[in-house]
Write a protein that binds this DNA or RNA. Sequence first.
DNA 1: GTCTATAAGTAGATAGAC
DNA 2: GTCTATCTACTTATAGAC
Lengths: 217, 217
Amino acid sequence: MVKTETPESRILAGARQEFIEHGLGGARMQAIADRCGVNKALLHYYFRSKERLYQAVLQEIVQTMRNAIDEQLVTMNPGDDIRTLLHRFIAVYIRTLRSNPDFPRFMLREMADGGTNLSELIESVAPMLKNIPIEINRRLSAGMESGRIKRISPLHLMLNILGMCIFTFIARPIVIEINKQMPLGIEFDAAFFDMRIETILDMAMHGIAADPLSDKG
Amino acid sequence: MVKTETPESRILAGARQEFIEHGLGGARMQAIADRCGVNKALLHYYFRSKERLYQAVLQEIVQTMRNAIDEQLVTMNPGDDIRTLLHRFIAVYIRTLRSNPDFPRFMLREMADGGTNLSELIESVAPMLKNIPIEINRRLSAGMESGRIKRISPLHLMLNILGMCIFTFIARPIVIEINKQMPLGIEFDAAFFDMRIETILDMAMHGIAADPLSDKG
DNA sequence: GTCTATAAGTAGATAGAC
DNA sequence: GTCTATCTACTTATAGAC
């Protein structure tokens, strides 16, 4: 297919940007039309209404996210140990979100709006939220039996790991704002995200290891 | 003061709810009026415009947050060790956000909207974002010198700790949604938040301790 | 201070020419 | 398929009675 610049695709691209920046309620059909240099009436010709256009954008993002996850998950091996599993889990999260920066913003907005479409978004990342944690929990249980892993609530562990991963992207505008108020020289480049993966993995592994340390310090 | 139910306060309360649920753009003046059982025109009588009403709500929330933080910070002692400092930092975050659940939602929405008022919100939590991290960094540096604490980027450590704390509240609607799709029996009660503080502190402490462990496993 | 009625403006959506 | 012009509904804001 040589003709990738169909009116539909241009409209979808413009709509995605507008919806990201202003949300469903705040987005303006006129603004979307202006972004892609077409007439406002054409938006209604291709997509019946604003609501349907939003749904189309959402579907596209969900599909992209799902594909990215599936692509990463084939590298999972049932025989992997807990460290390898956690490393993959964290890397999938960081890399996928990094490649799809629209996704966190849509999630944020949907959550702030009360999450009418939240259910659909969650289903799109369900493989990450279910299959992998199940595998991780299996290793955790085995490790707890043998005493090499401390007793820890899987829910809290998941909240901790997901929090460290996702907050990386949520904090982006905050960190940029802080950088303005007191410069720290922070760059959101490849090295930063690789370091993020290593740091999170390291903290998670030490957090679950059975306790050979003194707690006083 | 016996009369706490002034029209202003009732309008502010109703407006806060409406703005939380629908954001500045999505909120409706009529809906705010209905919430507090007053006439729509009265909103403009007390607060000149929708924009000013929103600013008033934001100011109120920022002030509440600032007071809550200041109240907690007086318990900080310059002589405290790193563990005590981290514990206070985490506890302040969890407890303050728990007592002010409106704050995370406003933060979420402001971030999603690109953060026009983000600067103001960040300034309101500046004491937590500056003073305490400075103290923590001082202890970290000392610990690294003596070899009891591993070399770790303070930025990444802060992202990890803040992520674990804040994600607790961000994930709330997600966890509730997941609980519907596959019941896990999760309750956001006092015990849960206390456990959260302990888990996060434990993971942070083990994450920064110098490495006496084998990484294989 | 609080209400009713209405003005002024803007949004999404459509009709119809080309 | 793409445009211009317009309709209808809704929203903020105000004027003015009480």
